[in-house]
Design a protein around this nucleic acid. Sequence first.
DNA 1: CTGTTAGCGCTTTCAA
DNA 2: TTGAAAGCGCTAACAG
Lengths: 338, 338
Amino acid sequence: MGATIRDVARRAGVGLGTVSRVLNNSPLVSPATRQRVLDVIAELHYTPSQIARSFALGRTLTISTIAPFFTRPSVVERLRGVEAALAGSGYNLVVFNVETVERRVACFRDVPRRDRSDGVLIISLAPRPVEAAAMGDSGVPVVLVDTFAAGLPSVLVDDVAGGELATRYLIELGHRAVAFIGDPLEDPLTFNFTSSRDRFAGYRRALAAYGVALRPEYECHGVHGRYEARSMARALLQQPEPPSAIFAASDTQAMGVLEAARDLGRDVPGSLSVIGFDDIDVAEYIGLSTVRQPLFESGARGVELLLAMLSGSAPRTPLEYLSVDLVARATTAPYRPG
Amino acid sequence: MGATIRDVARRAGVGLGTVSRVLNNSPLVSPATRQRVLDVIAELHYTPSQIARSFALGRTLTISTIAPFFTRPSVVERLRGVEAALAGSGYNLVVFNVETVERRVACFRDVPRRDRSDGVLIISLAPRPVEAAAMGDSGVPVVLVDTFAAGLPSVLVDDVAGGELATRYLIELGHRAVAFIGDPLEDPLTFNFTSSRDRFAGYRRALAAYGVALRPEYECHGVHGRYEARSMARALLQQPEPPSAIFAASDTQAMGVLEAARDLGRDVPGSLSVIGFDDIDVAEYIGLSTVRQPLFESGARGVELLLAMLSGSAPRTPLEYLSVDLVARATTAPYRPG
DNA sequence: CTGTTAGCGCTTTCAA
DNA sequence: TTGAAAGCGCTAACAG
């Protein structure tokens, strides 16, 4: 434990800088010298101190990810992509989980700083304009995934189009009483900027396109989660004129809807169609119809952008859109009156 | 960007050490001086460099976690506990995902070093004796979760007892043709040390206790995963004398079994009982009977041990066992001949 | 109480 | 091609 570069230099009878050169594969070392140094390194079990190296380099060799990981399975799936794309890059991955407003503020303020991160990836959490501006000034490359902020590059999908896609599908199945369940329109944690909101806009747009009147009592917004969605759906289904189809802004919420239907003995898809969004892992398992977005790929792509920025190239396109697809499975069916 | 402690000292007209003292809440500063320094700090938007601080301190201020995160939902749930317990401790959480032998070797070798981590948490991956010994020598506190290695403290459950519990339950429901599906007995990634193996031992023990003969054709071991379990289960159910109950060593694998039953039109639990292990999130949703273990808590407890070790106290008990419970849901039922 | 100073281990000039 | 030396920004020991 604890041989330093100096020990190696001394033992190899060379200068300190030479050892450093060997370590960094500099071509400016003679083969003989290099070999001697290498031998001593092996002999001493020497490995350079990451931390001293970082200090001297002025780089931390870490990429930080800020996200609400555990409240959203979709984020974990994105993280998978992040991890895969980062493997072998030499960067460590440090994660900051955000589930409260305080933590969000603290992370946005402290993490994107040169002495903490070489690059930052923010997932499913939108910085406010001032925060985004501060990030821009920090000099640390920041990439957003599944969100947007002026001046910061991001990888996203067209959630409005996705919401519209889901809703059109239901309408084309003959449904007219189509309800929506999604996140709160005002959410301090996400600064009111959620993909749910856009999907909701798509929902309304589809309805309008088909001349179906909006019904406020069909529009539900509540804290993200399966249980919350379940109770919203229950209320929805107990209305005098319950919907025949429900579009949930996420698969997690769609699962809550399915539970509510089960609670109330409504057959899915017989008397109720349900569609979600994301296509998380379990969606296939439970046969949930949904709008698929490339979660893994979004994380991987975010890292690619970040790595490119770290090696000097500015992102070509500030906004990069990935595509969404409708995945029809077993929770949607043509409308049947009664 | 980039005010240093020296700038602050100069501007406040004090010595460099005084600023450091203020930063570290040393009591050896007069209130007046402290205030002056604080003012300058605010004025300059100064924040100390984490990295320089780490370097001077000789501590990295990070906790590393090594685990196969994405192949096992249970590990993500444990990570949740880790994250929660670490929040507010001042430590950053860096994650090392391991899915190959090479990566495992590299992580075990490189991560537990003073210049990289102040403490290391290893989840669901057992270090080999030599690796464990090296970790012990590194001087970096290491805590294991869901695994074991001589000389290293760990947080686990009694998997043998858990496996026995599950199997006994099936037997007591009247099943005699009880099969097992689990991970490979020889797995280089986990160095043959898996909780699955212990659960399998519990399975055999329960059978023996009831005088039920072991049937090699009922013992399946294959790569961990839903798809693999699905095909193993399919083969199992197509045998001349198919089992009437299956114990899967994890919920993920139990889900594969459920799919296989669906594929072959076997009614669960009518003509096939299925029980899993872990009680991951979706288990409740899909009504899977299982053996519950405290996943979240295991991660949190691991961090607690680690933090205690970091503040000097040796772990009282090298092995800390958490308890398991049987959770009977909708995939198990009494044996019905035919 | 407070200023000064000596490193922490490495990278990177700058000479030789 | 190589050695020597100057920091990177901070903490902690030491005088005062």
